[in-house]
Amino acid sequence: MTHMTKRPSVGTLSAPLVEALVRDAESLRLGIEKTSTGATIVDGGISVRGGLEAGRRITEICLGGLGQAKFVADSRFPGWTTAIQITTLDPVTACLGSQYAGWSLSEGDFFALGSGPARALWAKEELFGELCYKDEAATAALVLETDKRPPDSLISFIAKECGVSEEKLTLILTPTTSLAGSVQVVGRVLEVALHKAHAIHFPLERIVDGTGVAPVPPPAADFLGGMGRTNDAVLYGGEIALYVEGPEDEAEQLANGLPSSTSKDHGRPFGEIFAGYNFDFYACDAGLFSPAVVTVTALSTGKSFSAGAFEPALVEKSFRGA
Rank of each mutant, 00 (worst) to 15 (best):
E53N: 07
N256Q: 13
A322D: 15
S300V: 00
C132E: 11
D135M: 05
G212W: 00
H195R: 12
R188M: 03
L171I: 10
Y277N: 14
A94Q: 01
F202K: 07
D24V: 04
V189C: 11
I200N: 00
L204I: 09
E250A: 07
A118E: 04
L66W: 02
V42M: 05
F310I: 11
L17Y: 03
A283E: 13
G64K: 03
I155N: 05
S156K: 12
S106K: 11
A275I: 09
F111N: 13
T262C: 10
P259H: 08
S36E: 12
A140T: 13
L28N: 02
T301Y: 06
D222G: 12
I58S: 00
I158S: 01
E125D: 13
A73D: 15
G116N: 04
I61R: 02
T93G: 05
T5C: 06
G228K: 07
G65P: 00
I207C: 06
V213N: 07
R229V: 15
T35D: 06
F111W: 14
M1A: 06
P219E: 10
K34I: 15
P175E: 06
D135T: 11
N256K: 15
D24L: 01
Q85I: 04
A123H: 06
I46V: 12
C132R: 15
S27L: 08
E126T: 14
S104V: 08
K264A: 15
A54Q: 02
F77H: 04
T176I: 09
A275L: 15
T12L: 08
K160M: 05
G163S: 08
D43W: 06
I84M: 05
T301Q: 13
G97L: 12
G181P: 05
T297Q: 02
R206E: 11
D222W: 11
R7K: 14
L121V: 03
T88Y: 00
I273L: 09
D109K: 15
E316T: 14
G321A: 08
Q99Y: 07
L105K: 06
L314M: 10
G257S: 14
G302E: 05
T174F: 03
A322R: 09
S153I: 15
E145R: 05
I172V: 11
F319C: 08
K134A: 02
G302M: 03
R149N: 10
R7I: 07
A94D: 09
S318Y: 12
A25S: 09
L169S: 02
C95A: 13
D135W: 01
L171A: 00
V192R: 00
W122R: 07
V296T: 12
K168M: 10
I240H: 05
S36L: 08
T295L: 04
S47I: 10
S75T: 13
C284Q: 04
L30R: 03
W103A: 10
L173H: 05
T177E: 10
G11E: 02
S306F: 03
V48C: 08
M1F: 06
G51M: 06
W122L: 12
G321H: 09
L288I: 00
G228M: 11
P269N: 12
K124W: 02
R320Q: 14
W103R: 15
G97N: 10
P175K: 11
F270L: 01
D280Q: 14
C162H: 01
G11Q: 02
T174S: 10
A25C: 04
T230S: 15
A73G: 13
L190F: 00
R229G: 07
Q99I: 02
L13C: 03
T170Q: 12
L121N: 07
A69K: 03
T297F: 01
Q99M: 14
